[in-house]
Design a binder for these strands. Structure first.
Length: 926
RNA sequence: GGGUGCUUAGCUCAGUUGGGAGAGCGUCGCCCUUACAAGGCGAAGGUCGCAGGUUCGAACCCCGCAGCACCCACCA
């Protein structure tokens, strides 16, 4: 784009893609220089995934941090990559197979895995392409995938080391079993949901025929596996029955009545059926009493009792049948409505069963101890700090982590068995064979464990496995520990805690210094965005725009519950009658940054994107203005130049802004950065300085040298603003920077490697700031009268300054030209206090009165009303001041500077009120 | 059952050593002013959830209550 051909309106599509390609191909994203290292490891998105609002938000934060530190001269690496996402990915490919009428078992393990790899190669790049659209400056040359050979190597190494230290073990235990996916799950992958059901009271006849006990259960079908009936040892009602046998109905098996503290005598009947194989508590009770668990389910949670009439029935069918059969035998005492928490698998949403199987576990407590200490000692810092408490609560109660999964896609557990069931854990089969030979004295046939590891096992190694661990690499030396982890609170347990445990275990260092925990993006109503609710916004649609029909189509296809389509369509049409306009990446990123507050819910409001798109347009046009007026600087930028008060003022403001932005950046308050820069660029630079520059450049009284100073200031301050904005809105700032370059002393190819503006105290001119504040106050006074009187903005007004002090007069003289132009003054006169003046509308600036004579343009009634309102407002303030000052305790106890401030304020208010009142009288007497 | 967070302008939200309540969007009024109408200028709008306490002074600190949201948990 030629520099004089900036289009009149900002068009993100015209600039974004080309700039990104140029950055990537010129290697801008790779670490450079010799500065202090700065590193962020991306939370690897699922390779199956496509970018959603949560990613876009999180990636904006990370990219802003990374770009900021790069500009600060740090040797910066944003490590990227994707996660193999075991169950999720397997499900995607299985669904494809199902559509072909096949299952994974038809293909067999190897062919199925090959099919997933094929899918990954063809479709796995979606999210990384989308990350590029977001402007994410990841070092793609270092991209990793959790199933890459080097990362798999890290996984095996970690497993073997933990096993050798007895921190991993294999055992038969009750685990959460997903009967649809046919795999064990960790506790975290089980979600408890409240559901309405019943509490069945069942009569269990005593074996001696002398009556029955009544047990209450929410799962009557599990009675087939009952091993005992338990009562509380102190429960007088049942004391004599302890030790007796009951005859389990329908089964005809005798089971004992036992006493155990676990039983709550006040719940139900105080009698509890014990089913050790299908309930976590009962399992514990069973262990205490030496009961043998009776497994009554198969892996699909159908009844597995050959010979029984219920054999082969689904658990819920069996429930109905069993209740009916018990009813027929008059063994149901009563059925109560009951609300209970039902455990469901987070992927399949199937009701999970406690199920007795052989699984692999990580002994978590030993690993948790140092991980707790690292946060306690401040080696790791949560931001906001509150989250450390959540972390501690979980870590202090941590349970062993079930890491084996009965699926095919993932890191296969590096354990081999001989035909006697001996286990050989090793880095590869050859080493397992060596172990086996040591035991057997000869080569034996081994087979590898069929299970794969929980995806989070490899994720937990991510910050160092991506840098080369277990090898010693330069990258590991340089960039580990990483600087900050940016993540949502939803995966503190899944991921953050486990990374800390593994990081400390394997590297001796915490994997990151800070954990910045951001909120979760929700829709405008605060609802979680989900396909089934039909309220999902695609970040790419906000960038590119989408027409209503396409949006409706997108939201209503592929629904799990197709009957929702109509409702979703209606709400979508209502909410987006014109579809979604294109806002561009920068506006979206700026919006996300503005939402990066300390809260946990982030409601996404489209209005804000539009506002920030407008801000982009504002910047664009400010740059156009600067370009149009600074041709004389092209290839001749000035190092030293004359400046006036306005130039020194805007430059002083720039210094303070740089300081504020740096402070906000250090504490991850991107919302404050946005706020600060938005206000500076729009209100101070555009609204005031640009307007002043116009006046100065058109002023025949100003020397050409001074005008060049104005031009250079226009360029320099805009350049600084662009650099400060760049981490948040990379594209537009780069595009404009490229235009501005020839007018600046720097000769860099990209704004990306420009220095970030720093606070320079010697650039601050307090006198210039005070002068300009005076100018602004006076101009605002005139504008207020104009606005309140509904005077045509084009109409030039005669203005009289009355009274005031020497400083007022000096300033009025110095800034006469600015005042006249900014206030659209026809004339400016100065009179002393007490001198006769025409009837006027009045504004006050300190001790000086600003008078706009009531001519034909001034509405006398309107002015009276305006004065009245003004007086009322001031009177209220004065009242508050006086109440304070009349309180002897306040005067006695408050700090002196506060009291003085209050007194000065009261004095000023009283003077102003007096002045306005006398003006009221004069206007009224007209 | 235990815990956490939130409640500030019509909407979405800032407001950290307690000392004159802010922004964006929306609304109203006047303007197509040669950077920008995706704009300019001006204005209106709040008993800071409720009720106490501490303090000279509370949106902010403490106690209680209410509503909302979320997390954890083995009462069948």
């Amino acid at each position: 784009m030629n520099e004089n051909e900036l289009s009149k309106t900002y068009d993100p599509h015209a600039i974004e893609q080309a700039l990104y390609d140029a950055w990537e191909s010129s290697g801008q994203f790779a670490p450079a220089g010799t500065g202090a290292p700065y590193c962020i490891a991306i939370p690897p998105p699922n390779v199956t995934g496509s970018l959603h609002m949560g990613h876009a938000f999180q990636d904006t934060i990370m990219d802003a941090l990374v770009r900021y530190h790069r500009m600060r001269g740090h040797r910066t690496l944003w490590q990227g990559g994707t996660d193999h996402a075991g169950i999720a990915t397997q499900m995607v490919v299985e669904r494809q197979l199902n559509a072909e009428g096949k299952t994974r078992h038809d293909l067999g393990r190897d062919a199925f895995i090959e099919r997933i790899w094929k899918w990954k190669r063809e479709s796995g790049g979606t999210i990384t392409r989308q990350l590029r659209r977001m402007g994410a400056s990841l070092d793609w040359s270092r991209e990793r995938f959790t199933m890459d050979e080097d990362l798999s190597h890290a996984v095996r190494e970690a497993f073997v080391r933990l096993y050798e230290e007895d921190l991993i073990y294999r055992g038969k235990r009750l685990v959460n079993w997903d009967p649809v996916l046919h795999t064990a799950l960790s506790d975290l992958e089980v979600l408890a949901e409240e559901e309405q059901s019943f509490l069945w009271h069942l009569r269990y006849p005593l074996a001696n025929g002398s009556g029955y006990v009544i047990v209450a259960t929410t799962r009557p079908e599990t009675m087939l596996g009952d091993a005992a009936v338990a009562v509380h040892p102190d429960d007088e009602r049942y004391r004599q029955l302890v030790g007796c046998q009951v005859m389990l109905p329908l089964v005809g098996r005798e089971i004992p009545i036992i006493a155990d503290d676990y039983v709550d005598p006040d719940f139900g009947t105080g009698c509890l059926k014990i089913t050790p194989a299908h309930d976590f508590n009962d399992y514990e009770v069973g262990n205490r009493h030496g009961l043998t668990p009776v497994n009554i389910l198969d892996p699909s949670a159908a009844i597995n009792l050959p010979g029984s009439p219920y054999h082969g029935m689904d658990r819920y069918d069996a429930r109905e049948r069993i209740v009916a059969d018990l009813k027929a035998l008059d063994l149901i005492e009563q059925i109560d409505d009951h609300t209970l928490m039902v455990p469901r698998g987070d992927r399949s949403h199937a009701v999970v069963e406690p199920y007795l199987t052989d699984q692999w576990f990580v002994r978590a407590q030993a690993l948790a101890e140092p991980a707790i200490k690292a946060v306690e000692d401040g080696d790791i810092r949560f931001v906001p700090a509150n989250w450390s408490r959540t972390y501690f609560d979980w870590m202090h109660n941590i349970q062993d982590w079930c890491i084996s999964r009965q699926i095919w896609w993932g890191h296969r557990i590096p354990a081999w068995y001989d035909d006697q069931g001996n286990i050989f854990v090793a880095r590869d089969e050859a080493q397992a064979q060596i172990q086996a030979q040591a035991l057997h004295g000869q080569v034996v046939s081994l087979y590898q464990d069929d299970d794969v590891l929980d995806t989070w096992f490899s994720s937990a190694l991510w910050p160092f496995s991506t840098l080369g661990w277990p090898d010693s690499t330069d990258e590991l030396d340089t960039f580990y520990p990483t600087s900050v982890l940016v993540t949502g609170f939803d995966i503190i347990f899944f991921w953050v805690a486990r990374m800390i445990m593994f990081g400390l275990k394997f590297t001796g260092s915490a994997p990151f210094r800070d954990v910045y925990v951001h909120g979760l993006v929700r829709d405008a109503d605060g609802q979680k965005m989900s396909k089934s609710k039909g309220n999902v916004l695609d970040p790419l649609d906000l960038i590119d725009g989408i027409a209503l029909p396409a949006l409706v189509e997108k939201r209503t296809t592929g629904l799990m519950q197709p009957q929702m389509a109509k409702h979703i369509e209606d709400t979508t049409r209502r909410q987006f009658p014109d579809g979604i306009p294109s806002f561009g990446t920068d506006a979206l990123r700026f919006t996300f940054a503005s939402l990066a507050t300390q809260g946990r819910d982030i409601r996404f409001d489209l209005g804000r994107v539009e506002g920030f798109r407008n801000f982009c347009n504002k910047l664009w046009n400010a740059a156009r203005f600067v370009m149009m007026n600074t041709d004389s600087l092209v290839d001749k930028p000035l190092a030293n130049f004359e400046t006036g008060t306005a130039e020194r003022w805007i430059n002083s403001r720039l210094q303070h802004i740089a300081q504020d932005v740096a402070t906000s950046m250090e504490v991850y308050r991107l919302d404050q950065v946005v706020q600060t820069l938005h206000a500076f660029a729009w209100d101070e630079y555009c609204s005031w300085y640009l307007e002043i520059a116009k006046i100065e450049l058109a002023d025949d009284g100003l020397s050409e040298a001074h005008k060049d100073g104005v031009r250079q200031t226009l360029v320099n301050v805009l350049g600084a603003a662009l650099r400060m904005l760049h981490p948040i809105m990379p594209f537009i700032t780069e595009a404009l920077w490229q235009q501005l370059r020839s007018r600046t002393l720097t000769n860099s190819d990209s704004i990306m490697n420009q220095p970030y503006p720093q606070f320079e105290p010697n650039q601050v001119d307090d006198k210039a700031v005070a002068d300009m504040e005076w100018v602004q106050a006076v101009v605002s006074g005139v504008r207020n009268i104009r606005g309140e009187m509904n005077i045509d903005p084009r109409k030039e007004l005669p203005v009289i300054f009355q009274g005031g002090n020497d400083l007022d007069r000096r300033r009025a003289r110095d800034f006469q030209t600015l005042l006249a132009a900014l206030g659209r003054l026809q004339s400016l006169a100065f009179v002393a206090d007490g001198e006769d003046t025409p009837q006027s509308a009045t504004a006050l600036s300190g001790e000086m009165k600003i008078l706009v004579p009531l001519g034909s343009v001034i509405d006398r009634t309107a002015e009276l009303k305006r004065l009245e309102r003004e007086v009322e407002k001031l009177a209220e303030d004065l009242q508050r001041c006086q109440t304070k000052l009349s309180n002897p305790n306040f005067v006695a106890r408050a700090p002196e500077n506060i009291v003085n401030k209050e007194q000065n304020r009261a004095d000023q208010l009283a003077r102003d009120i007096e002045e306005l009142k006398s003006q009221q009288t004069r206007v009224a007497s007209l």
